Computed example of a mutant assay.
Amino acid sequence: MPIVKAGDIEIHYERAGEGPRLLFISGTGGDLRNKPNVMDGPLPKHFDTLAYDQRGLGQTVKPDEPYSMAQYAEDAVNLMNAIGWQSAMVIGVSFGGMVAQELAITHPHAVEAMVLACTSPGGEGGASYPLHELQEMTREERARHMIPISDRRHDEAWAKANPDTYEQLVAMAAADPFADEPGHAMGQRRQLEARAQHDTWDRLSDIRSPTLICAGRYDGIARPETQEKMVSRIPHAELKFYEGGHLFMLQDKQAFPDMISFLTGGVI
C-alpha cells in the first residue's frame, strides 16, 4: 500500500503502466479500494498512470478541519513532487475536474495537457449539482434522488419500465463498504463542503494547457450548457459530448479512446 508524505498530509496512491506521465484525479467520494477502478481500465496501457485517494477519503489522511479547493490542488502537485514528477498530463473527473482546474490555474507548469470530464467551473459559469444539500438523506434515498439527475433519460417512466435495472443502479449507488470506518463520513462531508465553494469561472482564462472538455449529453449534474460556457472561457479548449449521463465514460465506448488520442497527439 504505497503512502507518501505530500505537503502536510500522507497520501495513498497507486501507479501503473508505462509511457507519458498521467495524473488521474477522481470524483466525489473516490476510494481506490473500490474495484474496478481507473487502474483496471485502458489508461495504464498508454500512460505511466498515477491515481490517489484525495484528502479525507480512502486510505489517505483525514484531518477533521475545513478543506478548500486550493488545498486539493496543492495536494495534487505535492504528490507529483513527492514521486519525482515536475509535470504531467491530467485527467480530472467530476470533482476531480474541479481540482484539475485549480491545479492548472495555480500551477500551470505542472499541467502539460488536461482532460476535464463531467465537471463544472462554478460561479457564473454554472455549478455542478449541490450534493452537499443531500447529506441528511440515507444513502438509498440519495441514490433514488440522484439517478434521474445523473442521467436525465432515467426518469420515473424509465424506472417503471426497467424495474430490475433501476434497482441494480440503486444498490450500486447506495453501497459503501467502508461506511463504518473512523473519519469516513467526516471526510466525505468535508469534501462536499469544499466542493460547494468551487469557483474558477473568473480565472479560467488563465489556463494555458491544451484542454479537452468531455461531457454526457444527458448529464444533470454537470449540465451540457455549463460545458458550453466553460469551453468558451478556456483558451485552447475543445468540447466533445457523448451518449450518456454523468457516467458517460462507462456508457460511451468512444470516450476513453478520444481522451487517450487527445493526450497522445493521436498516437494510440
Rank of each mutant, 00 (worst) to 15 (best):
I3E: 13
A6Q: 04
G7M: 06
I9E: 04
I11Q: 14
H12F: 11
E14Q: 04
R15S: 03
G19P: 00
L22V: 02
F24S: 08
I25V: 10
R33Q: 04
R33I: 02
K35G: 03
P44K: 08
D48T: 11
A51I: 07
A51E: 10
Y52G: 00
Y52M: 11
Y52I: 01
G56P: 06
G56S: 09
Q59G: 08
T60M: 12
V61P: 07
S68Q: 06
Y72M: 15
A76V: 05
V77S: 05
A82V: 00
A82P: 03
G84F: 03
W85V: 09
V90N: 10
I91E: 02
G92N: 10
G92Y: 11
M98S: 11
M98G: 06
A100F: 15
I105Y: 12
T106G: 15
H107S: 12
P108E: 08
V111P: 05
L116I: 12
A117Q: 13
P121T: 14
G122S: 03
G123F: 03
E124W: 07
G125S: 07
G126I: 07
S128E: 14
S128C: 12
Y129H: 02
E133S: 13
M137K: 07
M137E: 08
M137A: 12
E140N: 10
E141Y: 07
R142V: 11
H145Q: 15
M146L: 13
I147P: 01
P148W: 03
S150N: 05
R153P: 06
A157D: 10
A157R: 12
A159H: 04
K160N: 08
D164S: 08
D164N: 07
D164F: 07
Y166A: 02
E167D: 06
L169H: 06
L169E: 02
M172P: 00
F178C: 05
D180L: 05
P182K: 13
H184E: 12
M186P: 13
M186A: 15
Q188D: 15
Q191N: 10
E193C: 11
A194I: 09
A194D: 04
R195D: 14
Q197I: 14
Q197R: 14
H198T: 04
D199C: 01
T200R: 05
W201D: 13
R203S: 03
R203G: 08
L204P: 05
I207T: 13
I207Y: 10
R208W: 01
R208Q: 13
R208L: 12
P210D: 14
P210K: 02
T211M: 14
C214V: 11
Y218K: 04
D219S: 01
R223I: 00
R223C: 03
E225D: 07
T226L: 13
Q227F: 01
K229N: 10
M230A: 08
V231M: 08
V231Y: 04
R233V: 04
I234G: 00
A237Q: 09
A237D: 04
F241D: 12
F241V: 07
F241S: 08
Y242K: 09
Y242I: 12
Y242L: 15
G244V: 03
G245N: 11
H246T: 02
L247Q: 08
L247D: 07
F248D: 00
F248Y: 06
M249W: 15
L250K: 10
Q254A: 06
A255G: 01
P257R: 15
D258K: 13
I260W: 08
I260H: 11
I260Q: 08
F262Y: 02
F262I: 10
T264V: 07
G266F: 05
G266M: 11
